[in-house]
Design a protein around this nucleic acid. Structure first.
Lengths: 386, 386
DNA sequence: CATATCTTTGAATCACCAT
DNA sequence: GATGGTGATTCAAAGATAT
């Protein structure tokens, strides 16, 4: 590390016979600062690199969160907000200019068949997506990272923000991008990998700390980068990350046998990243699979059956012996004798029990006989699961 | 249907006494073409409607990027046929002009506290999202419709496109938008509703056909609209859909006791939609009810419990772990360690917290066990409510 | 040592009314 | 517009502490 290494730019991904048009195939070997952090602004850093020299750019740019005042949890604690200076922009126009500047340089240094990944939230991802389309990138997929354990919405004011969005784009419409279809299908138990990926947020041992506090406010999970790199790069490829932070991209690249280049302005992030990547060990292919593919367990809420028409609002549910009868309402709550609540809660109430499994307690009349509500759930699952 | 109906613009959501600031409350009743399809271009249709007159706009715009043609072609947008990227940019510019045109009219007719929903895919959603931010809309959530049964990627060239994206936005940053938190929590088995919704695509009986072929290429499932409307509108609200298609929005609005207005140019879509909505059955009043948030329930002052004898002056309250003990006084104030104040204030003081909900923080001993003070409030409410 | 309970925490555009 | 009072509000996972 730390030395300019010489690598040959590969001919092209596919057969080099016919696709070698405007590609870098005729260029001589280029000098790239491989496996190093360029400790400066990413636009400046990328400007020091030659045209068409990297295979992939993975970017986790500032989200421009625009947070208001402090936020307190119901139990009184304060939420540790992302209030770093690097996330502050004066306006959308300023943010757009910033975005187009780095996207443009990234596009210049990308090989013709290289591709770009960007991750963001609703605060910034629409601007980033529109900007990259304007610059000529061609979107291949948008990918949803469904967080297994997102932060709740403490005040009950909106839907829980439980995902982030990634955009995968090639340099241009006609590019012959890399997509390792088989590798993805293997990871996903022989089913095609979908555009929604379920993964936990970065925590536990993986979360880097310095003096007991998190080293970076928005560290991304390595599993995410694993899947991205495994899917859309090959061994030996060069991956550049313009917003390197604590070096998740570098650590995963090393483990997967890819070269990496990071851009990062902040010294303390650089120090953490260098130490981390030094400690990272290249992995066997076989070890990868265990880190991935926990498929989302099909969990059906009672309300879903109401929404989808399996059970109409107004339907009367009853206990097995028909002793208790309750009415289904539009939001999936039950109404019994002035009490309202979930099928579980009302089930417990009528029995004066501490708890109750409403799925097996309540029955509905299908015209012929009483049937357990749980049967409907099974029917729904059969109809909707692949 | 088919008649201009007169409705009163509601005062405001909550009590109309004091909150009538800049809302539409001072406006006279307005004439709206309720529960009708306006058979023309949506921009033209919306122009015929008054300012601040609808509660929600739900839009499923086309994402054919070539659409609009000369009609929305921006002034001076020259086409350079030599460069693909420029050609592409030009078509994006046309699409953006089209998008901003309808978004702008939609914003004009939205009430100050109304909200907008748009659904799209990666082809168009980034442009729509950036455009609506530019126009002053304030994004509240992006929602992922995770398709339970998406179409596979037959060629194995990309990830299976298994989701679509919805954006939920208020008219402006400060708007007091409607969000039926409790109803959503009910639908989701007592967990906060997240930003990723799993639902099957529209098929089976629900999929409308004409002469054996599907009546509309992108018919949305009613379950999706059901959740959208239940979450962000109230009964009696007016929902406008600028791209009505075969009328999913109208059918669900009718079922849920909302008014609807559709815009649709194509005659055969209109015919299918009218027939469909005619057949849709509205829910009964009782079925429509959803659980209220505590906010909407009558407030009980702590002192009332003391006055009415539910809690005697001199009673000792304590925190859950019995660590802190405070004494109830005759006026409903608490005394702890020389400090006096409301249950909330003293709760905050003992915890050294910025705020505290005293109802849930303090417990009393009923002789057998510790019970939350909030239980007493519920008891009081049950005893005094009709 | 095993199990149970408590504590901490994560990219968050996070209340509302009266004065 | 600013301030202050009332009171509404959380899910999953990991780690620490208690039984």
């Amino acid at each position: 590390m730390g030395i300019i290494e010489r690598i040959d730019t590969p001919k092209t991904k596919a057969k080099a016979k016919t696709t070698a048009k405007k590609t870098a195939s005729k260029k001589p070997a280029v000098d790239l600062p491989l496996n190093q952090i360029l400790k400066m602004d990413c636009v400046e850093a990328m400007k020091s690199l030659p045209d068409e020299s990297v295979d992939m750019v993975f970017a986790d740019p500032p989200y421009n969160l625009q947070l208001g005042g402090d936020l307190y949890r119901p139990e009184g604690g304060q939420v540790d907000a992302v209030d770093d200076a690097w996330d502050q922009f004066d306006s959308f126009a300023v943010y757009d200019a910033f975005t187009k500047a780095w996207l443009k340089e990234a596009r210049r240094i990308l090989k013709p068949n290289g591709s770009l990944w960007v991750i963001g939230s609703y605060h910034n991802i629409f601007r980033v997506g529109a900007s990259l389309q304007d610059l000529g990138y061609w979107i291949l997929n948008d990918i949803i990272w469904r967080k297994a354990n997102p932060m709740p919405n403490f005040k009950g004011t909106r839907f829980t923000n439980a995902h982030e969005t990634l955009i995968w784009a090639s340099k241009s419409e006609k590019a012959k991008y890399t997509f390792n279809y088989r590798a993805m299908k293997n990871l996903n138990d022989e089913l095609q990998m979908r555009s929604d990926w379920v993964m936990p947020i970065c925590g536990g041992q993986e979360r880097l700390k310095r003096n007991g506090v998190k080293a970076h406010p928005t560290q991304k999970p390595e599993a995410l980068l694993y899947r991205v790199m495994l899917a859309t790069t090959n061994k030996g490829d060069v991956v550049l990350d313009p917003f390197f932070g604590t070096g998740t991209t570098g650590a995963v690249a090393k483990r997967l046998g890819r070269h990496w280049i990071g851009c990062e302005k902040e010294d303390n992030y650089c120090e953490v990243a260098e130490e981390r990547i030094e400690a990272a060990l290249p992995l066997d292919e076989s070890e990868l699979k265990t880190m991935q593919s926990p498929k989302a367990k099909p969990r059906v809420a009672f309300g879903t059956l109401v929404e989808t028409g399996y059970l109409k609002p107004g339907t009367e549910l009853c206990s097995k012996n028909r002793k208790f009868k309750a009415k289904v309402r539009a939001d999936g709550s039950l109404l019994w004798n002035g009490h309202e609540g979930s099928i579980h809660k009302i089930g417990a109430t009528v029995q004066d029990a501490p708890s109750c499994n409403g799925w097996t307690y309540w029955y509905y009349d299908d015209g012929k006989e009483l049937r357990q509500v749980d049967n409907l759930r099974q029917t729904y699952l059969l109809a909707t699961e692949p």
